[in-house]
Amino acid sequence: MVSDLINRDSVSWDPGKVRQCFDWNSSRNILSMELPSNLKDDFLYWKYHPSGRYSVKTGYYFLSRNQMMNDSPLSTKDERFAKLIWSLNIQPKWKIFLWKLLYDGIAVKVNLVNRGIAVDATCDVCGLELEDSQHLFRFCSLAKYVWDNSPMTVCCDITGFQSLRSWIQHFILLFYSEDGRHSTRIIWFIENLWGLWTARNTKVFKGIGVTTATVVELVNLALKDHEVFNEEDKTRDMGGIEARREPTLPPGFNHVDGSWDKASTRAGIGWAFICPNQADTNDGGGKYGTAFSALQCEAWACLEALKWANRQGKEEVLVLSDSVLLLENLRSNQGKEISIAWLIEDIRVIALNFRKCSIIKVTREQVQRANDIANTCRCTLSNLVL
C-alpha cells in the first residue's frame, strides 16, 4: 500500500522505506511528489495533461503530442525560428497566422479539398491556378505585385526555396540578422502576408473584387492596427511600472521564492518578512527538501511563508512571488497543474486565517532576499530561521 510509505506523524514520505522498495531514480521521483496535509480519497485523473482533467481539448492535446513525437524532430533552424516568432512584439493573431502558414494549416482551397470539403480549388483572385499557400502568397499575380512594390526587396520566385515555410523563414531570419529583434522589415513582411490573406477573404466571403489598390489599403490598415497595438502595449507596461514604483502595502509582506535543481530534485525555499516602516526588520526563514518541479517549489515556499505569518499572529499579509504559474493556479477554481493540487488547496485554506491576504506577481529582483535564503537552504541541506 502507498500509505505504508508515508510517515503519518510528519505527513511526509518515509525515505528509507521508499528507497527499500524502489530503484534510485524511481525513489527520487516519488520523494519529490507532494502529499496532502490530511487524508484524502483516491480519485481518477487524466495523466496525459498537466491539469489532470479529461476533455475534448486535453484529449486532442494528447493525440497531437503523439503525432509530433512520431514526426521528424524540428531542426535547429526551425526551433530558433519558432522562438523568434513567439517573442516578436506583434499581435497574437499575427503569431497564430504565421504559425499556421509555416505548417500549412491555413484554410486555402487546396487544403479544404484535402480535408474532404467540396469546393472549387481555383484561385478566386487570378482564376488561373489552384489556390494553395504557395500560390496565394508567392506566385499569384496579386502577390507578385505586392512583393515587387514593397520596400523590402523580397523576391517571390527566388530559387532554392521549395516550400512557403522555407521562403518565409529565409526572409524573416535575414531581416532579424541584419536589423535585430525590432526589425521594421519583419513587421512589413508580416503585414504584406496578412494583407494578401485579408484581400483573399474579402473576395471569397464578400464577393468584392480585389485590385492592387485594395491590397495596398489592407496592408496600410494592418500597419495602423499594429501601431495601435504597440501603443496599448506601452501604456500597459508603463502602468505596471508605476504600480511597482508605488505599491500599496498592508502592514507586512512576505518575499517568497524557491530554488530547485532538476537533476537531483533538491529544493530550497525561502521567505523574508518586511515591515514597510521598519527597514531593519529581519524576519523569515527557509527549508530544504525535494520537489518535482520549480512550480511545486514556488507553491511550497508560499505555503510555508503563510504558515509562518499565521504563527507570528499577522492579521494582514501581502505575498510577493515571481511565479506567474503559481498565480494562475491560485486564480483557477480547479487549478491548472494537478501536480501541486494539494499545495494550492492548503494555501487557500490557510489564507482564510488572515483578515486580508493577497498574493501578487513581482520581478525576480523584488524577491532576491528570499531567493538567497532558498539557495542557501538547498545547497547546505539545512533549514533556516532568521
Rank of each mutant, 00 (worst) to 15 (best):
D9Q: 10
D9H: 12
V11P: 00
W13V: 00
D14T: 08
P15Q: 05
G16P: 01
F22D: 09
R28Q: 14
S32P: 04
S37D: 07
N38G: 09
L39N: 15
D42R: 05
K47D: 12
G52P: 02
R53Y: 14
R53F: 15
Y54R: 11
F62S: 14
L63A: 10
M68L: 11
P73N: 02
L74P: 00
D78W: 02
I96E: 01
I96H: 07
V108G: 00
G116A: 12
I117T: 14
V119M: 07
C123E: 04
L128A: 11
E131K: 08
K144I: 12
Y145H: 13
I158T: 15
R165W: 03
S166M: 02
H170G: 08
L174V: 07
R181D: 10
T184H: 13
R185Q: 13
E191I: 05
L193V: 03
A199L: 11
N201A: 05
N201H: 11
T202N: 15
T212G: 13
L218E: 04
D225W: 10
E227M: 07
E227W: 05
F229Y: 14
M238G: 13
G240M: 11
E246N: 13
P250Q: 05
F253P: 00
N254R: 04
V256T: 05
G258Y: 00
A263F: 07
W271M: 00
A272C: 14
T281D: 10
T281Q: 15
G289C: 11
Q296C: 09
C297D: 02
A301W: 03
N310Q: 14
L320W: 06
D322Y: 01
L327P: 01
E328S: 06
I338D: 01
L343Y: 01
I344M: 11
I360Q: 03
V362K: 01
C377K: 01
L384D: 00
L386K: 01
